[in-house]
Simulated scan of single mutants.
Amino acid sequence: MKKAVYVAALVVAGFAASGQAMADEALAKAKNCMSCHALDKKLVGPSYKDVAAKYKGNAGAADKLAAKVKTGGKGVWGEIPMPPNNVTPEEAKKLVTWILSVK
């Protein structure tokens, strides 16, 4: 019985985590981020997997990248600039938290 409860708890946790990831991907799609970025390949901008790998372990990355999402930037991934995005600071932080979690 304990094993069944444990397995059920893991399944629920997995669905909750999956739902959160999908919700953040949905926000990226809604804000047109996916026009220039993809999960696993370079489009106009870097893939989210490449961004996550570059900033892995960097404690200040989330705040720095959230500011770049909001105001735009250029030079880190090449000469094509990323324009400013019409997102709230909270949305920018949510997007970056999700991007940094992509594996």
Score class of each variant (00 low, 15 high):
Gly60Ser: 10
Tyr48Lys: 01
Leu100His: 05
Cys36Val: 07
Lys29Val: 12
Ala53His: 03
Glu79Arg: 10
Glu79Phe: 12
Ile99Asn: 04
Lys49Val: 06
Asp24Thr: 13
Leu27Glu: 11
Glu90Lys: 07
Lys56Asn: 05
Asn58Pro: 06
Val102Trp: 04
Ala59Val: 06
Tyr6Asn: 14
Leu100Ala: 07
Ala92Asn: 06
Leu10Val: 12
Ala30Glu: 14
His37Val: 00
Ala21Leu: 14
Glu25Val: 09
Met22Pro: 07
Leu100Asp: 02
Tyr6Leu: 15
Lys74Thr: 10
Leu43Ser: 12
Gly14Glu: 08
Val12Ser: 10
Tyr55Phe: 03
Val44Gln: 10
Asp40Arg: 08
Ile99Gly: 00
Lys93Ala: 06
Ala38Glu: 00
Leu39Val: 05
Leu65Gln: 00
Ala16Asn: 10
His37Lys: 03
Val96Pro: 09
Ala30His: 13
Ala28Arg: 03
Asn32Leu: 13
Ala38Val: 04
Lys41Thr: 14
Tyr6Asp: 15
Trp98Cys: 08
Lys68Ser: 06
Gly45Arg: 06
Ala13Phe: 13
Cys33Pro: 04
Ala26Thr: 10
Ala17Leu: 13
Val7Trp: 11
Lys54Thr: 00
Tyr48Ala: 03
Val69Pro: 07
Tyr48Arg: 00
Lys94Trp: 09
Asn32Cys: 11
Pro84Ile: 02
Ser47Arg: 00
Lys29His: 12
Asn58Thr: 11
Phe15Asp: 09
Glu90Ile: 00
Tyr55Asp: 01
Leu95His: 02
Val12His: 08
Lys3Glu: 14
Ser101Trp: 10
Ala26Asp: 13
Pro81Trp: 05
Leu65Asn: 01
Val76Lys: 11
Ala21Pro: 07
Ala92Ile: 05
Ala53Glu: 03
Leu65Val: 00
Ala23Cys: 12
Ala92Phe: 01
Ala66Asp: 04
Leu65Tyr: 01
Val11Asp: 09
Glu91Pro: 08
Lys74Arg: 06
Val87Lys: 09
Lys56Gln: 11
Gly75Asp: 04
Ala52Gln: 04
Lys103Phe: 09
Val76Thr: 12
Asp50Thr: 07
Ala26Pro: 07
Leu43Val: 15
Lys64Ile: 12
Lys56Tyr: 00
Trp98Arg: 07
Asn58Val: 11
Glu25Ile: 08
Pro83Ala: 09
Asn86Asp: 13
Pro89Cys: 04
Leu39Arg: 04
Leu95Ala: 05
Lys68Phe: 09
Thr97Val: 15
Leu27Thr: 10
Leu39Gly: 05
Asp40Tyr: 07
Lys42Cys: 03
